[in-house]
Amino acid sequence: MKITNLTIVGSGVLGSQIAFQSAFHGYSVVLYDLNNDVLDKAKQSLKILAENFKKDLNASDEQIEATFSRISYSTDLKEAVKDADLMIEAIPENPAIKTAFYTELAPLAPEKTIFATNTSTLLPSTFAEVTRRPEKFLALHFANEIWIHNTAEIMGHETTDPEVLQNVVDFAKNIGMVALPLSKEQPGYIVNSLLVPLLDAATKLLVNGVADIETVDKAWMVATGAPVGPFGILDVVGITTAYNINKIKFEKTEDETAGKVVGFLKRNFIDQNKLGLSTGEGFYKYPNPVYRNVDFLKP
């Protein structure tokens, strides 16, 4: 099946990026969210993305204008998916929220529609049955700033149709991604299987009073040559994601350190709406975080 029409559910950081990237490469996109206030914020985010595409990809005004012409907006889920060949879900990293969403979506979408979840840590098999089309359901994970970090990890589950998986691999390539199909389910795919332990270790060092934010990031940046440290990465990923991952871990295992991390992030960041780059402040303040200062790594 040729994928032509997309529906992106969730207009947050990654949802907006997926929508813009897909429209930039010629796809017709419907961006869905719960209400117009949320979509209005997404429209502002898309304007910022447009400037990034001009700066980083040398996109022309004509390309940007054409991109916006391919994006429409909806708060009606049935209407949003009525023509969808592929639905990509980018809603909060919470199993209960995702289960409720797929329960609502399943009877509304056309039979042809492939469902893909952008979950960064959860397995597609967790939700396969509730989608009521397990053979047309898989995970499709993008990294943040997808026009630069252009990876697309494609992970099916035991009953995903191989042809469906290949269709999504082809779609990912068509929107400029380096497609990374997995041979079996793996929590965290490839990238997050490598990245999450780093971010988790950094957060534990902070919460346990071993070192402060800047010292941890300096250690990583100087020792490895990385352009950004783990707390800078967490600001881009979004502190809410780190909070939700640790909250799920604590609820499942009652791990004491995970509980401390949850409390620390809630008090100091979540409750104060310091969620990272998206809100202008997280571990650092934006648009000019101190780790980008020319003397940040000087002896």
Rank of each mutant, 00 (worst) to 15 (best):
A143Y: 09
Y73F: 14
T131M: 12
A80I: 05
G263K: 12
G259P: 01
L57Q: 14
G225F: 10
L39S: 01
L182W: 08
E214M: 03
T113G: 03
F68D: 05
L108E: 04
V196F: 09
E153T: 03
T119C: 05
W147C: 01
F296A: 03
E163R: 08
S125Q: 11
F142A: 02
Y286M: 07
K252C: 01
P227V: 11
T7H: 00
W147D: 11
T215S: 15
Y73I: 07
S74C: 09
A100V: 08
A219S: 15
I8G: 03
L297N: 15
T224M: 06
F68T: 13
F171V: 10
N273I: 04
E145M: 13
V178L: 12
D56N: 10
V261H: 01
N118R: 06
I88N: 06
D85T: 12
L138Y: 01
A179T: 11
K184R: 15
A109I: 10
A106H: 09
L122V: 08
I114E: 07
L6H: 04
G188S: 06
T121Q: 09
L195W: 10
E65A: 14
L205F: 11
N268L: 10
Q17A: 15
A201S: 14
N273M: 13
H157I: 14
D255I: 06
V228F: 08
N174E: 12
F53W: 15
A109C: 03
I114N: 05
K184V: 07
V294S: 14
N244D: 14
D217F: 07
N293L: 08
L138P: 04
S193W: 07
L108M: 09
S74V: 09
I88D: 05
L195E: 01
V222M: 12
N5P: 05
D255Y: 02
K2E: 14
G280F: 11
K252L: 14
D200Q: 05
T119S: 14
S120D: 02
F296D: 07
Y189G: 12
F53S: 04
L182S: 06
L108S: 01
F68P: 07
K136P: 07
Y291I: 06
E65H: 07
D161F: 03
E158C: 04
S193A: 15
T241D: 11
E281S: 12
D212K: 13
I270Y: 10
L31Q: 04
I48E: 13
G282P: 12
